[in-house]
Design a protein around this nucleic acid. Sequence first.
DNA 1: TCTGTAGATGATAATAATTATCATTATTGT
DNA 2: ACAATAATGATAATTATTATCATCTACAGA
Lengths: 141, 141
Amino acid sequence: MDAINTKLYRNNYRLTGQRKAVLNVMMENKGRHLSAEEVLWEARKRIPNIGIATVYRTLEKLASLDILYKSMFESNKFRYELSEDDKHHHHHVVCLSCGQISEVSGDLLYELESKLDQQGYRIIDHELKFYGYCPLCNKDS
Amino acid sequence: MDAINTKLYRNNYRLTGQRKAVLNVMMENKGRHLSAEEVLWEARKRIPNIGIATVYRTLEKLASLDILYKSMFESNKFRYELSEDDKHHHHHVVCLSCGQISEVSGDLLYELESKLDQQGYRIIDHELKFYGYCPLCNKDS
DNA sequence: TCTGTAGATGATAATAATTATCATTATTGT
DNA sequence: ACAATAATGATAATTATTATCATCTACAGA
Ligand SMILES: [Mn+2]
Ligand SMILES: [Mn+2]
Ligand SMILES: [Zn+2]
Ligand SMILES: [Zn+2]
């Protein structure tokens, strides 16, 4: 939380009530992947007249500072979650039946990344998603 | 081409002039990742009055039959490319500077997938993207 | 070859997520 | 308190995609 604070101040971002509200929503939903609209509903519990534009602006700002991580799963809308402290984030398993998103840790990609390094690339991030059926849905089929 | 034909007929899809045009565009651009609108421009060289709705419909149909592969990179629009014959598709490296998309073969993910299998998941697909700088852009920095 | 019909098409309207605009308001350093 | 700057909310605009619907086409069967 303090780390986030200093990060914001270093970038001339004022920590307004609205931004605090959005941040709190994200922190209370660690591990979940919220859409802008879902964040809006939650944030309105704290700041009833907060606008959707502010929510979008705040989410984008926080994502650009790596405080949030932005990704898209099956629907065509972006979702946001609190970033982890360590640099490389986890991966996702999307259930094609119930839509549940689970997380996978572990980073088997260094091998591939170093191969790319040798080819002249400089890789700074990656994104890995698995699609399939979660244990519950898998049992029912 | 014949494999595609039979696949279409098996699914009651008539191989109309418009669909042939879209297919030809995709086959002439093997390895490229085209948006619906880009496909429209190319298809209009063959069928000048083909409509955007037909292009979208055709791309979706072909993707649902695994003839095309659909994905999204940096912009917020979907892109399509001809699928490869073998089941597991390649991965992508997106250059954050020039936008170039290169392909990575190799499939280091079986290990992770079998770990998920043991946990009760049934994984049927995955998607892996690397973000960074291509050899050319990397040199200039 | 003719014909009925399911399927396909193109024009266009509708939807939905995101972004831009702009007048008003809040925060901060002096 | 004041000026400068940044942030906000309402709302319009944009953009990609999907739905609607009247018209057209391919093709199996007579
Ligand atoms: Mn996650
Ligand atoms: Mn590709
Ligand atoms: Zn499930
Ligand atoms: Zn590049």
